[in-house]
Each structure stands twice: as structure tokens, then as C-alpha cells.
Design a protein around this nucleic acid. Structure first.
Lengths: 361, 361
DNA sequence: TTGTATGCGTTATCAG
DNA sequence: CTGATAACGCATACAA
């Protein structure tokens, strides 16, 4: 019964105003203030205007900690990614942030650093900050620590282009099939038969999917991969791209699908240009997406386009909708990819011509 | 006096365990539990081990809302940037996140979208989510709405490479002087006298600083700018870079300092390569930083390097340190830039040679 | 339509 | 060293 600041106490303008201050200022009770703040209909117009006036007069800001404590909702969503630095992830994050912002949700980010330990740490950090939901691009779908952590979570989980059957949650997936099919068709029509692939490791869905689509598309045409390089998340440096390309070229490949992280793709291009191999003349290259890199290069880069905007929007809205309808069944949404032909793919050249081209440099 | 769940109530394992559950489980009072959780020294070893055991047994997770309500600290820091998509911002965010994570602080992100209105919205959104501090790269240092909003904030404010005298807060600034000086010196030594600049508008510090350093460096050598293009944050597209380059070339410039957003720089390179202008043969180009773009391009791009890691680390640690010592005087930290000469800068060619080069393409 | 009373989970004060 | 107890600001069931 000892309301300390309920009435009176005209001392400190130091502390931020609370609904009690609003109540005193507008001459109603704090319940009425609360009702106005939450848009409750059962409140007289006069009371409402009074409270609203007090609200702007005192520059009232809701105390989110108090509200969260009471309602058990923080309006915070956590995003875990290998890193936020690379354009694919940062673009996704930007769209997610924008979409969530629209409904008053803020985005909490945490990088796993590309390791499973970092991932668990990131998840727990976000959890300890009270995130209502988690959006995750895992580094490894099989890591037991991550899976266990995810299973022990009460909040909703959404996987971004990842598939962990043991974890309940919605998923937004990228289907590389069309893009890869069109790529192979395109390359084969240009005479290529020795085609190489760089992609993620098979412990994440994108790696598995791309690999299998690639192999299937080749098989349909009686071909086999010239080379395949599967990447770990730990080493997504351009150095890896460089050495991978070195290996691939030894296989005699005349075309490369560089469908890994952008830093690796940069390494591929790096190796090619710095070794005097010009595309499409000496080798054909297909990369992911339309980036600053791919548009600034002289031969525009033929690319498999991932519908990034749609991908992230779907994810955001899935998360949002589940807040209202928490018991809906698990949903899996898939977005397609497609090939955009530019100038880094061309007719295959004979070995002799390639050698000559190299010497000319 | 009606403790509902203080004792007994073995009903629901549904709700997450609280310190009361820990207290019951370990046979001590919740005060002692709280002490253990906060590392308070005044607690017996026996009690501590008891509580710790209960903690892992029940998989206890601190309720951050309750703690925040009580301590008035959320351990959340808000980051406001024009957008998170571009590599400079996303890299900064990544480093900030990593450094803050080390001391248990999570990063809340909000994009302003490059507009002043969006900026105010972003700040208020973060504020409503209880951020303890704000790290900001403003879009416009002069916008009254933003300034007023910032002034009305109780939390600490840190400006990233921005300078708003009317706002109290620490600052971490990038000093372009050395990098720009070295660039001009380098270019002049190669015979260039007509040098153009692309940078931010003068309503943000980077724009002002780069512009004045550029002009001073030229003046010291008896030169004047061949052209200057100042950018708005609203239009940081590669299209702008393209048209800007078109304009600049008409001025007869033989060298371009492209020191704006990376998308604009991409547009510059785009224009040059697609119009058959090769660097350094036809024109010299200096860009910002070492990016995937600049390392993958064939002539490696000469660049002014900003110490991004240091920049973000300083910012993070400034924020962290001010939490302990909130009344310290305002601090302004500055990080230097420097030129890294690669291959996109070379001896100036005569007009005739440039024309010939263009025709050869 | 409005006010009163209670509890959310935590920290902090104060008495033992 | 420990335990009881009072806030923190808000939402809400219930009474009026």
C-alpha cells in the first residue's frame, strides 16, 4: 500500500515519465491511461484526448521492459547469420529489418562467425536478451549443440535456406533448380561439356541442393562434373576461391559455376583475371546475383539470380503472422532462382586457343 | 502477501523457471539466488554450488525484461545507419556486434533508408525498445528533427564519422586528410593536373572533410578541381555513379577520386569499363577501401584505406566504457586513412592518346 | 466507462 | 552470510 510516486512528488524531472505521471497530469487513473496507450476501445473520447495531450506534453516513452515483463513479449526478433559483412546476408538483414519495423518489431543481430560454437553463443545471447523469435542461417545443420539449443527454445524459430528436420519451425528456402538447370542448358548449348562447381558444403541445404541439381542437370545430358569444390563456412575467404579455381582449371573445365559466398566468387574472378584468363573467351563463369561486383566488371557476369527481396519479405511476414497465430502448422516456403545471361558465358574454345590466349597476355 | 508461485505449485513446467524456482530447488532464498547469479561475493561456497546446480538442472534463463525494469539497463545498443546493405556499413556493424557481444551487449539495428524522416523513426523505434545507447551514422547533420530527437534522448549517443555540435556525445571520426593528400601527391607525380572528385554531400562530415582536403591538397600544388560531384544519401545508386562520371569526363579530368558510397563507385567503374576506358591507361581511378570489387578487378584498384576494424572497435569500446563512467567528458577519436597504390593509377596520357585508345576498343 | 488491486521476475535495502 | 520485503512500470481481472 505504499505508493511512493503515485501522487505528489513533484521533485524530479530526471526520471522518464510513467503512466502514473500521465494519469496525474490528465486526471484519470493509470488503467485508463494504459487503455488509451493500447488502443482499447472502451474509453471515453474525453479521457482519450486528455491522456493523449498529457502524453505529448510529457514526451512520454513507453517503458518496454515493464511491458515485456507483463506481456511476455519483447517485440524483438533475433537474427543469426554466419556474418553480416557479406552482401547476401546484409541485404537479407536490411529487408528483414525494414519489414519487421513496419509492425513495430526491432531486429537484434548476432554473427556466428561461421562456427558452430559461435552459433550457440549467438543464439543464447539473443535469447538472454528476450527475443520473441529467431531467424537463422545456420552454419551447420548437423551440429548437435545447435540442434539441442534450438530444440530447447520456447520461442518461434524460422530457418533461412536451412533444413533441420529435428527442429520445429517455419522455413523459407531458395530453390536453385531452375537457375542451375538453365545454367547447364545454356552452357551445353554453347558447347561446354566440362563444367565445374563451387558451392557450400553439404552440411547446409544450399550446398546439398546446388550440388544435386548440378549433378542431375549434367546427368540428364550424359555429362559428369569436371570438378566440385565444397566450402566450409570457416574459410569463406577470397583466397579459397583462388586456390579452388586453380584446382578446377587443372580438371580441364571450360566453365565454372561459382555459387558460394561472394568472397569466394571474388577470389575466383580474381584468379582468372590475374592469370590472364578472360571470360568468356578463355572460360565461362556463372555467379550468384547481381552485385556491385558483377555489374562493374567489364564482361557483365552471367548470374543465377536469387529473389532476395521476396525471400526476406516472406521470412519476415512468416514470423509476423506466427505471432498472431502461434499454433498454425509448420510452413515451408520456397522461392525460385533463374538464370540471367550476360557476357561472361560464351562458346567453348579449343584447348589450343586457350593456351594461345594465355600466352598473348 | 499472496505469493502465488513462491512455494509449491508443481503444476506447469510450461513457464520458464525463475529465481524463485531456483530458490525452491536449491533450498535457499531468492535473494541468495540473485546474489549467486550476479557474482556477489558475500555468499557461502555451499550455497553457491547448490544454486549453480539448480541453475543447470532447470536450464534457467534470466528474464531480461525483469532485470531491465529493475536496473534500468537493457544491455542493448541501437545502431542507426543509412542502410546495412552496403559493405562499409555492414562491415562496421559486424565489428560493432562482435565487440559489444564480448561484454554481453546485443546490437539492435535500424536503417534510416537514407532519409531524415526515416532516421527519426529509426531512433524512436530503438528508443522504444529500450536501447541503452545509440550509435549513429546520420544522413544529414543539419536536419532539425533528428537534432531535436537526439537532444531529447537520455541515453548516451555516439556519432560515427558525423559531427553535430548541438548534440552531446562521443564521436569516432575518420580523417581523410592523409589518404587524400597522398592521393593527390601520387597523381600529380604521375603528371595529372585535372583531377575530379566524387564524395558525399557537405551536410555530412565525410563529404565536407574530403572536399576540403581535396581542395587544399590541390591548392598547395597550384591546382583547382577539374570537377566535383557531391552526393545525396537518397540517391546512392550505381546509376548516379554512371552519370557523374559522364559529367566528370566532359571536364577533361584525367583522374577521379571516387570516394562516395560503394554503389556509386561501382557505377563509376561501370561507366568507364563499358565505355572502353581502361585504367590506368585512359584514366586513373582511386577508390575507397579494399573490397571484393577492388580486388577482383583486373587492374587492382588504387585505394584510400579506411581502418574499418579500428574505427568500429574504438566506437564499441567508447560506448562500453561510458557505461561505467557515465560522466566523463566528451571524447572525440580520430582514425587516419592512407593510400594504397595499386594499378588503377598511372602516368597521364595526352588527349590524343586517349582518343586513340578509345577507338582501339 | 472507469478505478482498484495484483503480479510479472528481478535487484536492492535492511535487519538479523 | 542470509532472508524477508519493497519497489521497478505496466497490463488486466474484477469491482463499481
Amino acid at each position: 500500500m505504499s505508493k511512493s510516486r503515485d501522487v505528489g512528488d513533484h521533485s524530479g524531472p530526471q526520471r522518464p515519465p510513467t503512466i502514473i505521471d500521465l494519469a496525474r497530469e490528465s486526471g484519470v487513473s493509470k488503467s485508463t491511461v494504459s487503455r488509451v496507450l493500447n488502443g482499447n476501445l472502451n474509453v471515453s473520447e474525453s479521457a482519450r484526448t486528455l491522456v493523449l495531450a498529457a502524453m505529448i506534453k510529457l514526451d512520454y516513452q513507453m517503458n518496454s521492459a515493464a511491458r515485456s515483463l507483463r506481456t511476455e513479449r519483447s517485440h524483438l526478433v533475433g537474427l543469426v547469420m554466419p556474418g553480416i559483412k557479406h552482401v547476401f546476408y546484409s541485404s537479407t538483414a536490411e529487408v528483414l529489418e525494414r519489414e519487421l519495423q513496419k509492425v513495430g518489431i526491432s531486429l537484434l543481430i548476432a554473427s556466428s562467425g561461421g562456427t558452430a560454437e559461435g552459433e550457440v553463443l549467438a543464439i543464447n545471447s539473443l535469447r538472454s536478451h528476450g527475443a520473441d523469435a529467431f531467424i537463422l542461417s545456420l552454419v551447420n545443420e548437423n551440429d548437435a549443440r545447435t540442434v539441442v539449443t534450438l530444440q530447447s527454445i520456447r520461442q518461434q524459430v524460422l530457418l533461412l535456406d536451412r533444413d533441420v528436420p529435428k527442429v520445429v519451425g517455419d522455413k523459407v528456402l531458395i530453390d536453385p533448380r531452375r537457375g542451375v538447370n538453365e545454367s547447364i542448358e545454356h552452357l551445353v548449348s554453347l558447347g561446354h561439356t566440362k563444367i565445374a562447381l563451387i558451392t557450400h558444403g553439404t552440411f547446409v541445404r544450399p550446398g546439398r541442393e546446388v550440388k544435386s541439381c548440378f549433378e542431375e542437370a549434367l546427368a540428364q545430358r550424359g555429362l559428369t562434373p569436371a570438378a566440385e569444390v565444397l566450402l566450409e563456412f570457416e574459410d569463406v575467404s577470397s583466397q579459397i576461391g583462388w586456390t579452388a579455381t586453380e584446382v578446377i582449371l587443372k580438371s580441364g573445365a571450360t566453365a565454372i559455376l561459382a555459387l558460394g559466398p561472394s568472397s569466394v566468387t571474388a577470389g575466383v574472378l580474381n584468379y582468372l583475371t590475374w592469370n590472364g584468363l578472360r571470360f568468356p573467351d578463355d572460360i565461362s563463369v556463372i555467379v550468384y546475383d547481381e552485385t556491385e561486383l558483377s555489374s562493374a566488371m567489364k564482361p557483365g557476369l552471367t548470374a543465377i539470380i536469387r529473389p532476395l527481396e521476396e525471400y526476406a519479405c516472406l521470412a519476415a511476414n512468416l514470423v509476423i503472422s506466427r505471432f498472431s497465430d502461434s499454433e498454425a502448422e509448420q510452413r515451408v516456403l520456397t522461392v525460385p532462382t533463374q538464370l540471367m545471361v550476360r557476357d561472361s558465358t560464351g562458346r567453348v574454345k579449343s584447348k589450343a586457343k586457350i593456351s594461345r590466349a594465355k600466352q598473348l597476355q
